[in-house]
């Protein structure tokens, strides 16, 4: 009975807060994305629904929810419906270990980093199952591309995380952040700069976003794995993709930019650690997602593979050794 009470009264509220927060953020992220890209195209972006177009996300959601879900002929209905649920569930599950501020975390587990890596990789099953269940050649091609791409970039991403692990000496995300206390120079972005870049770029590739969005590739395979999806099922894929984007940005902020710590030192209010620092740092990377999308053309498929296997993986392996050596000899302000 005590356990039940604990689950309901403590964790349920946290879970609701996180899930609702993520969903609302995703809604406004779509608006933000359209505005940023429009501004970079020297356009206005959505400005019709509500003041300055601020109600546009709700209009989009209502439209998607009232649309019919079309099942393709000979599609496997069970797999067809379970695929978006897998994508969404894994994207949300990863949020369980994200510390928003000191102590503000749903599950403060020791293997947080591994858990996050597992959850973000599991998301690919949603894509593969969706492509397979759709009984469509474009969907299948998109799923194959996505699977190969995610497997390739997972390795570089994993190695980048090994660098963080070496630097922090812990897999617990809160511990990793605490290792970066003490202002701008103590953040891991400086000793781990190549790993930081590789982690973020791999993250962009993992979430199938431009310039690595070959799994969708409008010009080649229509919309890739989700061609056959419509209505609420498509909305779930959309939600999952954007939730994954937010989690990648949040993790980059946690592991390389010192999470909830302020870049300033001293006693003034601006140097205090707070959740707003974390949210601000996360938003920088979310903006970078759209910035990249507005700036870069889509990679050719073999170039993606070349970048993943021949560039990222060697660099990460070399830099892990560099980090290890720096740690052993207590270099800089980070490990003395």
């Amino acid at each position: 009975m005590e356990l039940l009470e604990f689950l309901i009264f403590d964790n349920l509220i946290y879970i609701l807060a996180i899930v609702l927060g993520v969903i609302l953020t995703v809604a406004y992220l779509t608006y933000f994305e359209r505005k940023v890209i429009a501004f970079m195209h020297v356009r206005m972006g959505p400005n019709r629904v509500g003041p300055r177009g601020l109600l546009q996300p709700f209009a989009d959601v209502l439209k998607l929810l009232t649309k019919e879900i079309i099942f393709p002929k000979n599609a496997n209905k069970f797999l067809f419906l379970i695929a978006p649920i897998i994508t969404l569930a894994t994207a949300f599950a990863a949020w369980a270990v994200v510390p928003f501020a000191d102590g503000m975390v749903l599950a403060d587990i020791n293997a947080g980093l591994v858990y996050v890596l597992a959850m973000t990789s599991l998301g690919v099953y949603g894509v593969i199952i969706a492509g397979w269940a759709s009984n469509s050649k474009y969907a299948l091609l998109g799923a194959l591309r996505s699977a190969a791409q995610i497997v390739s970039y997972e390795i570089a991403m994993g190695f980048a995380l090994v660098g963080v692990l070496v630097a922090a000496g812990s897999l617990n995300l809160s511990e990793i952040v605490r290792g970066q206390e003490g202002g701008l120079v103590h953040w891991y972005i400086w000793p781990l700069l190549p790993l930081f870049l590789i982690y973020y770029i791999s993250g962009v590739a993992e979430t199938n976003r431009a310039p690595f969005d070959v799994a969708e590739g409008e010009s080649e395979i229509v919309a890739g794995f989700h061609v056959e999806y419509s209505g609420a099922a498509f909305a779930l894929f959309f939600l999952g993709e954007y939730a994954n984007m937010i989690i990648i940005s949040a993790l980059t902020a946690l592991m390389f930019l010192g999470g909830w710590y302020s870049p300033f030192t001293g006693d003034s209010w601006i140097a205090q650690p707070s959740i707003f620092w974390f949210l601000g740092k996360t938003s920088i990377f979310l903006y970078a997602y759209f910035w990249l999308r507005a700036s870069l053309p889509r990679y050719r498929y073999d170039q993606i593979m070349r970048l993943g296997w021949k560039v990222f993986i060697p660099i990460t392996i070399v830099w892990i050794f560099v980090v290890a050596v720096m740690k052993v000899y207590h270099v800089g302000p980070w490990w003395n």
């Binding site: 501004f39 970079m40 020297v42 356009r43 700036s295 870069l296």
Partner: peptide, 19 residues
């Protein structure tokens, strides 16, 4: 090269819109 490209789009971000 990517930095140059990003700076270009960032420059256009602040331009007057044609819409």
């Amino acid at each position: 090269e990517i930095r140059k490209g990003l700076m270009l789009t960032q420059k256009y971000f602040f331009k007057r819109k044609f819409t």
